[in-house]
Design a protein around this nucleic acid. Structure first.
Lengths: 188, 188
DNA sequence: GTCTATAACGGGATAGAC
DNA sequence: GTCTATCCCGTTATAGAC
């Protein structure tokens, strides 16, 4: 792997573990094995490197979600497939974690990565539910955009609760609650 | 107001605006008007002051939620009252914001404040829903703990989406989705 | 109790040799 | 492209006068 890729990988890991503000260039260099100069040769600075790492991670996560999906299944099963994906509640979402960081939200380029990631995810879930409505699986009056936002928010909020309590249970409970709640959308 | 109270107020505001790591003692001093020495006279250091401010805020928020509640109303109305409370989506939750900060989660005393706050809130919502189940308003087989966790998670996750997109809409949509979903608990 | 001065440290970035 | 040495700044905490 190239030095450049080593730097991006090390940064992605550290952003997940420690967030943006708490990650220093020195830590990135130590973990990647690269020297001071290499980092400033390949990137303009910490923010540029972090943006690259965030884009890498967001693309990976989006591909994983959509790759595991089977569009021939019923819509509610596909959404439950998303809710049931393996997550590590105590570590948090690799993207969602970062948007509570003032430095990330204050930098338009960094925030834009998170913005695009969540917009895409919400749009994908909305499309899945909309397809279910079109086939008559879901009620014709179902508010699919609200349901999609609810699903993403439950996962993100579950991470918050799990981190606060240092316990995966609250995220699992929240997801269980969301799954039960989605039944309200089903046509009868 | 005493110097000590000025320090706590200024810290509470800064924690909300900037989070824990990004808030420096110097900022607290500038905003409160106190001098360097006063802070270290009243508190052992930054962490001690932040813990005091967090406890102050958590108590205030808990009192506001429970003070606005009317236990004589139906359970779903009471929960919807919580969901519909005024929030400032772009600023985030004054407690939930902080648990993505590695320094907060790494300090047992700071994390414990957030832990207690969310446990109390989930417990309160669980009790409200449990009361609704006891009166026959809700289905006898309703999973009230999961529903309570879902409600808190939707609000917290809504803050994450709103901050990522710099737009209150996704939190409002998620809350709308949760409200619609709670209908699934109603006895028919 | 409150103030100013300053210490000790680490963060982020640059310079310039190789 | 990569390295080491170095700079400047802000953060947290302490010292000691008032």
């Amino acid at each position: 792997m190239s030095t450049r890729e080593d730097l991006v990988e090390a940064t992605a890991d550290l952003l997940w573990e420690r967030g943006y503000s708490a990650t220093s260039p020195a830590m990135i260099l130590a973990r990647s094995g690269a020297g001071q100069g290499s980092m400033y040769h390949h990137f303009r600075g910490k923010a540029d490197l972090a943006r690259t790492a965030m884009e890498h991670v967001a693309a990976e996560m989006t591909a994983a979600v959509e790759g595991a999906d089977d569009p021939s299944r019923p819509a509610l099963e596909r959404v439950e497939g998303f809710l049931g994906r393996f997550r590590d509640p105590l570590r948090g979402c690799r993207i969602g974690r970062l948007v509570q960081d003032a430095e990330v939200v204050g930098d338009d380029e960094l925030r834009a990565v998170a913005d695009r990631y969540f917009r895409h995810l919400q749009g994908w879930l909305t499309d899945v539910l909309e397809a279910g409505r079109a086939t008559g699986e879901l009620r014709p009056d179902a508010d699919v955009e609200a349901a999609a936002a609810m699903v993403v928010a439950v996962v993100q909020g579950g991470f918050v609760l799990a981190r606060a309590q240092q316990d995966p249970a609250p995220q699992q409970a929240a997801i269980r609650g969301a799954r039960a709640a989605l039944g309200a959308l089903r046509a009868r």
